[in-house]
């Protein structure tokens, strides 16, 4: 179904907890594929690292149910920073923490507000990693997704999917794949692939709210 056009998107804490647990399930399902992508141009641990992190996120959300959307993202971000390590821990941790901070204490937020907050979060990731669109990183999925998010969750997921596939012909300029030079061409970036899982989980969480 197409989302958003038929009703105003008011996203509550339940939506955000569902988003994070949906992401955790997707990461768990796709961990081997992420690791496989990472072994082509990286160091073959992206799936197992994110699985460890998001498993801890799910546990933390159950342990300490967050009072607001912003608190849910803050808790998830802090958990990723303290459990994942590598580059993906600080990068995904920063994305969620900064997005959460932008949302403040609001009990519900609109999709447009989420898009603005996520945009700030993605900019923080770009600053931390020193990367830009086209460098064959997670940003190549996240930036198009955030631009499409005001339209609908489905549009965001499609944009992220196109962005992830779009990393295949790119030459990596940041992260461990950059050491390969020309030989990084022809492989999908594992960070863009995991970012698509995060964005796709947004759409699923929204559909679940409808049921």
């Amino acid at each position: 179904m197409e989302d958003g056009s038929r009703r105003v998107a008011e996203l509550d804490t339940g939506f955000f907890v569902r988003w994070l647990t949906e992401t955790a399930s997707a990461v768990d399902r796709e961990a081997d594929r992420l690791t496989e992508l990472d072994s082509a141009i990286g160091d073959a641990d992206h799936g197992s690292n994110l699985r460890r992190g998001f498993t801890a996120v799910t546990a933390a959300l159950t342990d300490k149910p967050p009072p607001s959307p912003g608190a849910a993202l803050g808790l998830a971000g802090r958990t990723l920073v303290s459990k994942v390590g590598g580059a993906s821990g600080p990068l995904y941790g920063t994305l969620l923490r900064r997005t959460g901070r932008e949302l403040g204490d609001a009990a519900t937020v609109s999709r447009e507000e989420l898009a603005r907050a996520m945009s700030t979060g993605v900019e923080a990731v770009a600053a931390l990693g020193g990367a830009a669109e086209g460098d064959k990183t997670m940003l190549d999925a996240l930036l198009p997704a955030v631009r499409a998010l005001p339209e609908s969750f489905t549009a965001a997921r499609r944009a992220a999917a196109e962005g992830a596939v779009g990393t295949v012909p790119m030459r990596a300029r940041r992260g461990r794949a950059s050491y390969l030079g020309e030989r990084s061409i022809g492989h999908e970036d594992p960070g863009a692939a995991s970012s698509l899982l995060l964005v796709a989980a947004l759409e699923r969480s929204w559909e679940a709210a409808d049921e």
Partner: peptide, 11 residues
Amino acid sequence: PGEVFTSPVPD
């Protein structure tokens, strides 16, 4: 020491 080929966490 972090996980295999993964940097340790700040803590």
